[in-house]
Design a protein around this nucleic acid. Structure first.
Lengths: 119, 119
DNA sequence: TGTTGACCTACACTAAGTGTAGCATAGTAA
DNA sequence: TTACTATGCTACACTTAGTGTAGGTCAACA
């Protein structure tokens, strides 16, 4: 079992963010030790890593909670979960395309700057 | 000259966001007509489009303001502005790479779901 | 005449955390 | 033993980048 500090370091999340996710129901209330400190298993670390990935792909905390609730419900939600991840994948693909277009925009601006233009 | 509604529509920004940017100093206080309504020139629309691009590449409002202040200062700031845009370009490239990695992560998850696995 | 529609200001609210104050406790160092 | 440091706890304030709402003005149209 790991302390919240160890988990935060390993997953790359702020301690406060982990507590925040717990409050929001994206994480079961952690088991506590004698000193009331939260303790986490490997499983939770795995979930936190995926949760972090989902968040970074632009999924809202609320959507992640929906997903998490479905996971807890069991295999009956597999089709719906699959759909959710597929949609997120599409959103991510769209986002990547958009960023590439913005990259072109920045490069245009840089070319003008390299030619000494002021705008 | 265009009204705030026309500008918002053309640039793809919320009216409130435009007023917010003005308050934050990313836009000169707009010229007003008799009815105290804001009026914008083509120039402002051009700047708003680039500002929107910068924001979407992940530049903070504060950084955009720094950039805008430099533009107003004149050509003496060209090197610093170039640097700022170059850094932003690099940040964007990094972001795109990160998103691609997350895409792989989502695809792995989907493959498992397609095989009927629950996690 | 009245009722849209677009604009105005000021203020409240939101999301997703981050930071801080004030406290407890455990382990180490003198 | 005492003191200090590290890590954890809760509760609450603050931040960013807006969005939404209330209450008001004004011009144009039926």
């Amino acid at each position: 079992m790991f302390t919240i500090g160890q988990v935060a370091k390993q997953v790359g999340l702020n301690i406060g963010a982990i507590r925040f996710y717990e409050r929001k129901g994206l994480l079961e209330p952690a088991v506590r030790n004698e000193q009331n400190n939260r303790l986490y298993s490997e499983d939770v670390i795995g979930w936190l890593e995926f949760l972090k990935c989902l968040r970074e792909t632009g999924m809202s905390v609320e959507e992640v909670k929906r997903y998490y609730d479905m996971v807890k419900t069991g295999t009956s939600t597999l089709p719906e979960r699959t759909k959710l991840i597929e949609d997120q994948k599409q959103a991510l693909l769209d986002d990547i395309e958009k960023k590439k277009a913005q990259l072109v925009h920045l490069e245009h601006k840089l070319e003008r700057y390299y030619r000494g233009e002021n705008y």
